Computed example of a mutant assay.
Amino acid sequence: MKALTANRLDDGEVVFWKAGRWVERFADAELFTAAETGEAAEASAKSQGTTVVDAYLIDLVESEGLWAPLSYRERIRALGPTNHLGHGKQAEGGAAIEALQHASGAARSTGRVNLIKR
């Protein structure tokens, strides 16, 4: 499974792709099972102009019956700042946040590796 992520240009917020638009919560993100579908969504997102910067696909892992980013970096981006549990998106709580907090895996997302190689 994969999800598409980027940073919104006007405020730097981490955003995720869902059905042709950007959403702020990982729990709302569209999940891609086929690489071709995810790559098509990535191309579509990049063609939208100057809404976001550096859109790329991230690898996901199952956690507590839900999906979470495989890489630690992407889990931090999905949760918000790590300085205090009461800050950022993690302050909302709920099953999706719990799954993100308890997910494991430290591999880099293949999409991020490709972005770095450019």
Rank of each mutant, 00 (worst) to 15 (best):
M1V: 10
L4N: 05
A6V: 03
N7R: 14
R8F: 05
R8T: 04
L9W: 00
D10V: 12
E13R: 11
W17A: 04
W17M: 05
A19D: 15
E24S: 13
R25E: 12
F26Q: 02
A27F: 01
D28F: 03
A29K: 02
E30S: 06
L31C: 06
T33G: 15
A34Q: 14
A35T: 12
A35Q: 12
A35E: 15
S44P: 00
S44H: 11
S44E: 15
A45C: 10
K46Q: 15
Q48V: 00
Q48T: 12
G49F: 06
T51H: 04
D54S: 14
D54F: 14
L57Y: 05
E62T: 10
G65D: 11
A68Q: 04
P69Q: 07
P69Y: 05
L70G: 04
L70A: 14
S71I: 04
S71W: 01
Y72W: 13
R73Q: 11
E74A: 06
R75Y: 10
R75F: 10
I76Y: 08
R77A: 15
A78D: 07
L79V: 06
H84E: 09
L85T: 11
G86C: 11
G86Y: 10
G86K: 14
H87G: 03
G88D: 11
K89V: 11
Q90A: 13
Q90G: 05
Q90F: 03
A91W: 05
E92I: 10
E92Y: 09
A95Y: 00
A95H: 10
A96T: 08
A96L: 02
I97E: 01
E98V: 12
E98F: 04
A99L: 08
L100G: 05
L100Y: 08
L100P: 02
A106Q: 11
R108Q: 10
R108D: 13
T110H: 07
G111F: 01
G111L: 01
V113E: 14
I116L: 12
I116C: 01
